[in-house]
C-alpha cells in the first residue's frame, strides 16, 4: 500500500515540476499540433495515392502523429532521473524507507499522464480539422489504452537506461538513434501495402507498429477486434518487458 502512496506523492512532484515551467507547457501543447499541420502539408499530394483506403492523408496520418508524440515523449522520460542522480536527490531518497519500485514507476506514471493529455489534444485538433473517428468516444478510450501501453514500455526502458548509463550524453545518443528509425520502420507514415517487402516484415517486430495499426483501425474503420486484440496483447507484453527492464536495472545499479 505504501508503494502506491509513494508513486502518487512522487508523481505529484514530477508533474508539479513540469507545470511550473511555462515554456514546457507551451512546447508540449503546441508540438503535437505542429506535427499534425506540418506533416499533412508536406505530404499533401499523397492524398491522391492509392492504398490509403480512400481517406485523406490527414485522417490516415493523425493516428500516426498520436503514436509518434507518445513515443518521442516517453523515450525522453529518463532525463529527469538523471538530474536526480546528479543532484544527490536519488541517494538521499534511497536512505529513506520509500518503496524502491515507486521511484521508477512514479516517473513512468507522470510521463503517462502528460502523454495521455497530449494524445487527447491531437485527437481533438484532428477532429476539428475534419477527421472522423469511426469508433466514437469509447474508441478514444481504447486509443488511450493502446498508446499508454506503448509509452509505458518506452518510458520504463528510458529510465532503466538512465540508471544504467548514469550520464546524459549516451542516453541522448541512444534515444536519437532509436526514436525516429522506429517510426520509419512501421506503418506510421505509409500504408503497409505501400511499404517495401523488407520493411513490411520488420514492422512486425516493432511495438510502434502495433500501436499505429490499433489506433488507425479505430479511427478509420472502427472496431477490428482481430487487429485490436493483437495490438493490445503485443503492447501489454512490451509494457511488461519495459517495466521489468527498468526495475531490474534499478535494482542492479541502484545500490
Amino acid at each position: 500500500m505504501y508503494a502506491l502512496a509513494d508513486i502518487w506523492y512522487q508523481s505529484v512532484r514530477h508533474l508539479r515540476t513540469q507545470l511550473r515551467m511555462p515554456v514546457w507547457i507551451f512546447v508540449n501543447l503546441f508540438q503535437p499540433m505542429v506535427w499534425l499541420v506540418l506533416f499533412t502539408q508536406v505530404f499533401k499530394s499523397l492524398s491522391d495515392m492509392p492504398g490509403l483506403g480512400g481517406v485523406s492523408y490527414l485522417t490516415f496520418l493523425a493516428p500516426g502523429i498520436v503514436v509518434m508524440t507518445v513515443l518521442f515523449g516517453s523515450a525522453w522520460a529518463g532525463m529527469g532521473l538523471l538530474r536526480d542522480i546528479d543532484m544527490g536527490i536519488l541517494s538521499k531518497m534511497l536512505a529513506t524507507p520509500v518503496s524502491r519500485v515507486s521511484i521508477i514507476l512514479s516517473r513512468v506514471f507522470a510521463s503517462m499522464v502528460v502523454l495521455v493529455v497530449q494524445a487527447l489534444i491531437i485527437l481533438l485538433v484532428a477532429v476539428i480539422m475534419g477527421v472522423d473517428i469511426a469508433a466514437g468516444i469509447p474508441g478514444v478510450l481504447l486509443i488511450i489504452v493502446l498508446v499508454s501501453l506503448l509509452g509505458l514500455g518506452f518510458a520504463a526502458f528510458s529510465n532503466g537506461l538512465a540508471i544504467t548509463l548514469k550520464r546524459m550524453e549516451p542516453l541522448i545518443g541512444i534515444i536519437n538513434f532509436v526514436a525516429l528509425p522506429t517510426v520509419f520502420m512501421s506503418s506510421t507514415m505509409m500504408a503497409p501495402d505501400l511499404l517495401p517487402g523488407w520493411l513490411d516484415t520488420v514492422r512486425h517486430f516493432n511495438p510502434v507498429d502495433y500501436a499505429v495499426v490499433g489506433v488507425r483501425g479505430l479511427v478509420l474503420t472502427g472496431y477490428v477486434w482481430s487487429d485490436l486484440w493483437r495490438s493490445l496483447t503485443v503492447l501489454s507484453g512490451w509494457a511488461a518487458l519495459g517495466a521489468l527492464f527498468g526495475l531490474l536495472m534499478f535494482r542492479r545499479k541502484g545500490e
Partner: peptide, 25 residues
C-alpha cells in the same frame, strides 16, 4: 541521511521538499 551533495529538489519549495520526506517516512 544528509549526503555530501545537497539532495534537495530546487524546483520545489522548502515545504514541498520536507513534506515529501514526511510521506516517505
Amino acid at each position: 541521511y544528509v549526503g555530501q551533495d545537497v539532495g534537495v529538489d530546487e524546483y520545489a519549495t522548502g515545504r514541498e521538499n520536507l513534506t515529501l520526506y514526511g510521506r516517505f517516512y
